[in-house]
Simulated scan of single mutants.
Amino acid sequence: MSTPTTPSQAAPDRAAVAQMVDHTLLKAEVTRGDVRALIAEAQQLGVYSICVSPSMLPVDAGAVLVATVCGFPSGKHHSEVKAAEAARAVADGAHEVDMVIDIGSAKAGEWSAVQADISTVRAAAPAPTVLKVIIESAALTDEEIVGACRAAEAAGADFVKTSTGFHPAGGATAHAVALMSRTVGGRLGVKASGGIRTGAAAREMIAAGATRLGLSGTAAVLDGLDQQPPAEDGAGAADQGY
């Protein structure tokens, strides 16, 4: 499965933005009925994928791809546990896995440990499974964001991703997305997630270099793509799972 290419300079239309979206539902109280409704909405909206908790797998999403998470949301799991979770998810039909790094290791500058953590999951979920690495950018300094992106690339990840949407420090910002995009230089995709609630916020993330969006309120974002100015920043607060 290939990494999406960087968007063109022209602002993408609704259909193009929809094809950048991981339509996401990761709340703890989610039922299988909720997931069925998510799939139906995903198919109606024409999104790229759904993203659900691994315990909800397997699912039949038709032509819509299936993503899941591992080590979520804290990242404070042994690497072997993350790897087992990822391998089980792939066996259950996941096309993509979004893993959370140990944020404490990044804060401590322990980049060999961060890389080893990602590498362990990569080995358990090899290509063509797409591996996205959640760095929780709002909790990191610029220097730490760069270090986390470099570790993800060295470990063979396909994407770097801003946020879980659950961290109190907040979600995606255009600054973080732009910094991540410059660091990976088109060699990896960049997923913006967490607090993106308006069409204007989505366009801002894409302009900053995002090649994928994690959204829970996808319909409202797509409906608001032509609305200017944005009703709110939309990129700072946690979003209860994107």
Rank of each mutant, 00 (worst) to 15 (best):
189 G>N: 04
120 T>W: 00
73 P>F: 02
118 I>A: 09
198 T>M: 04
167 H>A: 15
110 E>G: 06
235 A>G: 15
163 S>M: 04
53 S>H: 13
202 A>F: 00
176 A>W: 03
112 S>F: 08
50 I>F: 06
106 A>G: 12
92 D>G: 10
96 E>H: 03
188 L>H: 02
149 C>R: 01
31 T>A: 11
84 A>S: 13
181 S>Y: 00
198 T>E: 02
17 V>W: 05
217 G>T: 09
33 G>E: 15
50 I>M: 10
99 M>K: 00
231 A>E: 10
169 A>C: 11
20 M>Y: 08
145 I>H: 01
144 E>C: 10
83 A>H: 02
117 D>Q: 14
61 A>Q: 09
12 P>E: 11
149 C>H: 04
52 V>F: 05
79 S>M: 07
113 A>S: 15
92 D>A: 15
105 S>P: 00
238 A>R: 04
1 M>G: 14
9 Q>L: 15
170 G>F: 01
185 G>C: 03
135 I>F: 02
18 A>R: 07
159 F>K: 01
151 A>C: 12
2 S>Q: 11
82 K>F: 05
155 A>G: 07
40 A>Y: 07
133 V>Q: 07
217 G>N: 14
124 A>I: 11
62 G>L: 12
234 G>Q: 08
51 C>M: 13
64 V>H: 07
230 P>M: 06
58 P>L: 15
171 G>W: 06
34 D>S: 11
104 G>P: 05
201 A>N: 01
44 Q>T: 13
126 P>S: 10
218 T>N: 09
27 K>Q: 13
9 Q>R: 14
208 A>W: 06
34 D>F: 12
23 H>D: 12
242 Y>R: 00
72 F>E: 09
39 I>A: 10
59 V>K: 13
51 C>E: 13
109 G>S: 11
60 D>S: 15
175 H>I: 00
140 L>Q: 00
128 P>N: 07
242 Y>D: 01
39 I>L: 11
170 G>P: 07
18 A>W: 09
182 R>V: 02
27 K>C: 06
84 A>H: 04
193 S>P: 10
121 V>Q: 02
38 L>K: 12
63 A>W: 09
